[in-house]
Amino acid sequence: MGQTVILGVIGSDAHVVGITILEQALSAAGFDVKNLGVQTSKDEFVSAAQKHDTGAVLVSSLYGHARQDCQGLHKQLADTECDAVTYIGGNLSVGQDDWDDTREHFRELGFNRVFDAETDPSAVVSALERDLDHRTAEPETQRVRMNS
């Protein structure tokens, strides 16, 4: 199996479609995905990151309250000496008028990458491969030489 990635929807958010699609894309790319599902607390993210010695924690939020839900997440991860890369994506703020301000806010909270709700899953996979130096294993091929 590949590098372990924790995935979930934070807070009271119950939007499941996005993380399901992302889970499939990450699994197909060779990552070992632990999907925590919807309505995941910060404590659950931190506990899963510790339990699975994860390389990345991916937080999703579509209901617009991620600013509140993510307060203190990185402190909790640091307190457990978790050094996973962290991503967040979705509709992160109610009235998200200025995406640059929203992205900067979540960068200040400690997220390594911030994605909007329109991000293609392949962009997340590519970013994780770069950030984790993950190489998807190519199936080995053997050449059979025929003697004439």
Rank of each mutant, 00 (worst) to 15 (best):
T136I: 09
L26W: 03
S61N: 09
F111H: 05
R135E: 13
D13K: 00
G110N: 03
E44P: 06
F111T: 05
D101N: 15
E118R: 15
A137H: 11
E108R: 14
T40L: 08
R67F: 11
T119Y: 09
A49K: 01
G30P: 00
D13W: 00
G8C: 03
A84T: 01
A84W: 03
G110D: 04
A28H: 08
G89K: 05
D97R: 13
H15Q: 02
L62Y: 09
A48M: 04
T86S: 10
Y87G: 11
I21P: 01
G95E: 01
R113P: 07
E140W: 10
S27T: 13
I6C: 01
L109P: 01
K42M: 11
D83I: 09
E118A: 15
T4E: 07
V16D: 15
T86W: 02
Q76Y: 06
R113D: 11
R113N: 12
L77N: 04
D133F: 09
W99M: 04
V57F: 00
D97F: 12
F111A: 07
D79C: 03
V16S: 15
V9H: 05
H15I: 01
T80G: 12
G37N: 03
N91A: 12
V144R: 13
A48R: 06
S122T: 13
V59T: 07
V124H: 02
V124Q: 01
I6L: 04
P139H: 14
D120K: 14
A78K: 09
M146N: 11
Q39T: 11
T141E: 13
T80S: 15
V16A: 15
S60F: 03
C82D: 07
T80H: 15
L22G: 00
D100V: 14
I88W: 04
D83H: 12
S41A: 07
A28K: 10
D83A: 09
V38W: 02
I88A: 06
Q71D: 11
T119D: 05
G30L: 05
V114M: 02
V114I: 04
T80F: 14
D32G: 06
V5S: 03
D97A: 11
